[in-house]
Design a protein around this nucleic acid. Structure first.
Lengths: 230, 230
DNA sequence: ATCATACTTCGATGATATCCGAAGCATAAA
DNA sequence: TTTATGCTTCGGATATCATCGAAGTATGAT
């Protein structure tokens, strides 16, 4: 038996699609909480927990515990380099469903960040909402103006209902591709949800990038003054 | 779900120890028959056949049918590079299962990586070529100087012919044992080939470590200023 | 104090992959 | 033609693993 360093243990970890998705989500270099990684992988938190435990035990990822959150990140650059090399192989295989560049530009254009909008679209929507005086950005949260309350209610947000939940309502989230703030929290999720139910956006199956439909393009332009170049 | 290129499919293939052993056996660049790969992996021919079929379908290996034998080899250099990168990760992991300490020192001294030289020898040769002004290391490739062109032509490299091939000509490959760059690509392969045909190097049968012959030792010292301690 | 959130452990289930014996096919040697 | 060799397919036993529901711990918010 020829035994290099035990490559197969490392490879087996990345052989599971759920774990691959998690690690890919961490390739940007940001530390992400377990729930978001679960969402990225399309599995329940229990399953994600089991996967993260294995990745952690193998030393592929590290964790920072901050309050009740655990932020996971890639353990070192060698791991990222190995994954890049594997992507190189995979992208040259006879099964190139989608080029990485395409995917990446799509991701930068519009994507979900857990449950709210991110990318250029997320920033643009947040800017537009602020420009129209619906929200006011503060260091830790967005304040919703009276006009904003009317507007969001019209969008289908139930303020009474939302405020019952203990979740943070509307707070700024830093975008890795835009390096700008966009709106997260339950209001951000509600906005994203409103966009989905109106058919303005569709999820791409394979990643977090989003498709802006024709009606979405029209509505964004008319109602928000947003015109995103493709 | 975040899906890079089908990295997990590739990883899953290498996640099985039997397949890993086979691929590692092919890392030396030689084409090997199925039975030998079965032996290397410690499985029966039936099992090996099934594994080889999968590796073949995924495009990781190619096959030459010669009589009743089938000779398998790695499909391309990208695959070897990815495996090297994975070995880099694995060798830094806290996994002290050193089963092959004896072979490992030989591997560290001189070995082939798919089709070019690696280990201390590979790094030393690359350093020597750079020190003599034959090649210039850039982030993504080695540039060949005018003097280098003359030198490599003398070594038997046909530049016109090589450049016709689609393969990358000369690029830096990170070595898992030395953590230094060495020269890969078709030029790296040509150099290794020149060393073999001159009788400076011999392949060891059981792995991809190399024996430096007496004439090789002399030639390396005189022509490249390389003196590797055993 | 009370509730919500973030994450974990445990247990059961179902899906999948490895593995080898038996048998078959193809080529080469006798 | 007969026999041996290299390799493959088939079938079924076994083992492993991902997955999620249920239930638990810990932290934070109110």
């Amino acid at each position: 038996m020829i035994a290099g360093p035990n490559i197969s243990e490392f490879a087996a970890l990345l052989g599971d699609p759920a774990r691959t998705s998690m690690v890919m989500a961490l390739m940007g270099g940001l530390a992400l909480p377990a729930t978001e990684l679960a969402f990225a992988a399309g599995v329940t938190p229990q399953t994600a927990s089991s996967h993260l435990k294995k990745l952690l035990a193998a030393g592929l990822i590290d964790v920072d515990k901050r309050g009740r959150h655990k932020y996971y990140r890639l353990a070192n650059a060698d791991i990222a380099a190995a994954i890049e090399a594997m992507m190189q192989v995979a992208s040259n295989q006879p099964n190139p469903k989608r080029r990485r560049a395409d995917n990446e530009s799509a991701m930068r254009l519009a994507r979900t960040c857990y449950d709210h909008l991110a990318g250029r679209l997320g920033v643009a929507v947040t800017d537009s909402l602020a420009g129209r005086g619906y929200i006011l950005e503060e260091p830790d949260r967005f304040q919703i103006t009276r006009q904003g309350k009317i507007f969001f209610t019209g969008l289908g947000v139930d303020f009474e209902d939302e405020l019952k939940k203990r979740r943070k309502f509307a707070y700024p989230c830093l975008d890795w591709s835009e390096r700008r703030m966009h709106m997260a929290g339950s209001l951000g999720a509600a906005v994203a949800n409103g966009f989905f139910t109106r058919g303005w956006l569709k999820r791409r199956a394979e990643d977090r990038s989003l498709i802006i439909t024709e009606s979405g393009r029209t509505a964004l332009s008319k109602q928000f003054g947003i015109n995103l170049a493709v």
